[in-house]
């Protein structure tokens, strides 16, 4: 799947949040979406999937414009969105969460079945009858990824997945992202924590006040003191790769 976003303008009430944002994610590519809090990262993702429809511009998924399509269309085309925070169906059990997700996109067949999700995330299998609202933060992230996987997506949009997670869980999350990459899924990763994004993506965009300020490889972003300060990080982080 190839995702091309061109000149998106999105408003929240009267405030003009996205002011012509554009980006491209090639099939199987992992791309970071960087920017400070309030730059419009979440809005951009919501506009891509249709939760906050953009007023103008285009969202092309394999050439099809989804800007005005309802949110469920993008999911059925293989674009999975993982919003930030503890967004699980909290009163449903883990198994019910996964089952609801799977049946939401009944036509999407592929390698990912419930069984395989449980194999990859044995922890989820252990808690499959527990209410999702009672899971730990890490388990909920696992469930969110599992929920995306059972729809056999071609591309995954992750909004601030590390937010509020313990460092050990962040590390685990990194491994799961590696898994997605190995499965040849495209990734668009919105992150405030630039270090995490650097470790797991090759290319990135820097969003500032609703516009793309910079586009380039992660090395380029780190080599520019100006871009680092725009991100609010002074130090060059240790490269974990």
């Amino acid at each position: 799947m190839r995702l091309v976003v061109e000149g998106l303008h999105t408003y929240y009430g009267a405030s003009h949040v996205l002011q012509g944002a554009s980006l491209v994610v090639e099939p199987g590519e992992a791309v970071a979406l960087l920017g400070r809090n309030g730059a419009g990262k979440t809005t951009l993702m919501r506009s891509i999937v249709g939760l906050t429809p953009a007023r103008s511009g285009s969202v092309l998924v394999d050439g099809r414009d989804l800007r005005r399509a309802p949110p469920y269309r993008s999911a059925r085309l293989g674009l999975a969105f993982l919003p930030s925070g503890r967004r699980v169906f909290s009163s449903l059990s883990v198994a019910e969460n996964l089952e609801v997700a799977r049946r939401s996109c009944p036509r999407r067949r592929g390698p990912w079945t419930l069984k395989r999700v449980y194999e990859v995330f044995p922890k989820l299998a252990e808690v499959r009858t527990r209410r999702a609202g009672h899971l730990s933060g890490g388990e909920q992230q696992m469930l969110k990824i599992g929920r995306a996987l059972v729809t056999n997506p071609e591309m995954v949009l992750l909004d601030e997945p590390t937010e509020g997670l313990a460092p050990a869980v962040v590390e685990e999350l990194g491994q799961w992202l590696g898994l997605l990459t190995r499965e040849n899924l495209g990734i668009l990763l919105a992150e405030q924590s630039a270090a995490f994004a650097l470790a797991h993506t090759a290319r990135g965009y820097l969003l500032e006040k609703g516009r793309m300020r910079f586009e380039g490889t992660m090395e380029e972003i780190w080599d520019s003191a100006e871009l680092r300060s725009a991100l609010g990080v002074a130090e060059h982080p240790n490269r974990t790769r």
Partner: peptide
């Protein structure tokens, strides 16, 4: 029940809300 918990996640997951 999923819609009661979180309609947005349900909808962006592929359900015609």
């Amino acid at each position: 029940r999923a819609a009661v918990d979180d309609p947005e996640v349900l909808e962006s997951g592929g359900v015609n809300l």
